[in-house]
Design a protein around this nucleic acid. Structure first.
Lengths: 340, 340
DNA sequence: GGCAGAAATGGCAACGCTGTCTTGTCCTGT
DNA sequence: ACAGGACAAGACAGCGTTGCCATTTCTGCC
């Protein structure tokens, strides 16, 4: 295969018999170019398969690219990619593209990847913070790049953020279980040390405390090692003395694990379950969940970024997106009768 | 917030008391720069928060970016994003970033988005073809940009492609159902007119023909309108005269629809089901599926792109990735006894 | 001491494009 | 016939970087 040379403005200009500036005008503002010249230029461009070089344009214009970066733990998680899809949709409408970079959920990864993206002069940076500290972005913020934290607030960095009403979600869910008569309610999560989980845990404890139950440690399984399978955690909890009659799970991974554990324990619909995060087949299986709209989360983040790009001033904002409970059966189970 | 000016090589050079060329050297090949100069330059760069401008570098070097574009129907589909995750993983290791663009599964979208990506001088283009015709990329291929089609071959364009052994998947699945004694086997898909579906349909028909069953139209439900809910299609089929005792579904959306339909029909485990595409909770629900590795698909596509970037010559290749059947119960059901 | 050769640094131009300014052309009205 | 304006197109420089080549400085050795 012969590899041709890529055509430039100059080449098109030569073929059309005009100056490169005129060609440039045709491809930007079509003002002040005679209609027949426009036609001649476009014909020449088409023949040479000319495509304006966005890089060169960006460089000359002094601006960066029309690209927005999104740093994500891993694309394998349905939550992440749904957020990504929301971002993409919002950006496409505004003429921006989305670069996705993953960090394998590691702090060094986050900084390395952020550096690479910023070198590409992205117009804004969206990220789901993983590292303990985002102060390394402070300089970039001063240079005018909007930074938006999604799902968890950034630490040691003044940045807009969009998070869920995590605490309210588990608070309400726990309340409902209490209202049905449950008193021994479990809470399982893995990982446990992230912002979202500590908020959710707090919602659960608050609701328990409100009902006069102040000691919940015996029903909590908070683990940080992702290699511990969630079904084991739930299984352990169900087999413990004083086992709970209802379980709350901190994310969809644990919810699915809980389903496996319940199946393996031949629980047969006796233990109530409400999971945080909805998932694709939850309605088929019939699992009650605390739900929210991850696509909307991405949209709002992107919209906020676009807004900030136009006007970098103004106070930083922290948006909270609502969560709601979807009843599908498992969360509405009555507490099982005590033996004896 | 005061917005500072972004530092350039020149600024760093001034502060370090060297020429901009020396600074450039420090940030590229560190050869032939005195160690103490390197140190001084790095210190100055850090103080000014300097970050080399990848755009300018790319422009000067005559090459494009270190970015690879991936055009995808919609990010909302688990299959797509798993492929994306495989691509990203492979690329990150090689120092490339991934730009994701969606087309809303429309042909115009595909061309528009491809144009935008190519203007950004991406180093390679990966896409899941949606349009009827990819000949619009012919010019770009001549300019040396590798184009790799994923999941479906490109049409009217010489390009590498990576697809699944679709036909073999449904062929084997159908054979297994036949071996269990099923004779009336249904096939449901939506959309139907895409490459993957026509291949899968063919595998099903071939296996049926091999068993001497040449007329299968009465058990096929091939629909192209995405607004028709899959559960209705399956439901109709189950209620028809001469209803099948086993059903094959063409993709995960239809499989989930089939599960709903079976539940609504209170079928209670009588109809056998094998679905194409595995999905997250398929093991919890216990659905037999034709599975494959979408992440691997992405990896291979990215690897192929990287290879082509190094050497654009050579014949185009069409890789086929294996599929396999995972037995989880629904596919192993015996045909129900006929009434009377 | 002089000189070759290596090591370290600098100058200049150019990558492809566009902002600013200048030049050229044509038409209109008096 | 000619000033004046409106419109069209070109010249030039520069965005931030690096490749090429030139220059300076240093080291070792006869």
């Amino acid at each position: 295969m012969t590899v041709q040379q890529r055509a430039t403005l100059e080449d098109v200009a030569r073929l059309a018999g005009v100056s490169s500036k005129t060609v440039s005008r045709v491809f930007t503002t079509r003002d002040l170019v005679a209609p027949e010249t426009v036609e001649r230029v476009l014909a020449a461009a088409k023949r040479l398969r000319f495509r304006p070089n966005t890089l060169a344009r960006g460089l000359r214009r002094g601006g960066g690219t029309n690209t927005i970066g999104f740093i994500i733990g891993e694309l394998g998680n349905p939550f992440y990619y749904k957020v990504a899809s929301g971002i993409e949709r919002e950006l496409a409408d505004a003429g921006y593209s989305l670069v996705v970079a993953t960090t394998d959920d590691s702090a060094e990864g986050e900084e390395r990847v952020a550096d690479a993206l910023l070198s590409q002069r992205i117009a804004a940076l969206l990220l789901i913070p993983v590292a303990e500290d985002q102060s390394y972005l402070e300089g970039e913020r001063h240079l005018g790049t909007p930074v938006i934290a999604i799902d968890r607030p950034a630490r040691n960095l003044v940045a807009d953020s969009i998070v869920l009403e995590n605490r309210r979600g588990t608070f309400e869910a726990t309340r409902r279980l209490l209202a049905r008569g449950h008193r021994r309610i479990g809470y399982v999560c893995n990982p446990a040390s992230v912002y979202t989980q500590s908020e959710r845990l707090r919602g659960y404890r608050d609701a328990m405390a409100e009902a006069g139950i102040r000691t919940t440690a015996q029903w909590e399984r908070l683990v940080d090692d992702p290699s511990v399978p969630p079904d084991r955690l739930v299984g352990d909890l169900l087999r413990a003395d004083d086992a709970p009659t209802a379980v709350l799970t901190g994310n969809n991974r644990v919810t699915v694990g809980a389903l496996r554990a319940l199946r393996d324990a031949a629980d047969d619909g006796r233990t109530a379950l409400i999971g945080f995060d909805d998932f694709d087949t939850a309605d088929v299986i019939g699992v009650s969940v605390i739900s929210y709209d991850p696509v909307e989360m991405g949209r709002r983040a992107a919209a906020l970024a676009l807004e900030r790009m136009g006007d970098a001033t103004g106070f930083t904002r922290q948006l909270e997106l609502p969560t709601w409970i979807i009843e599908r059966g498992t969360g509405e189970r009555e507490p099982r009768k005590e033996a004896g």
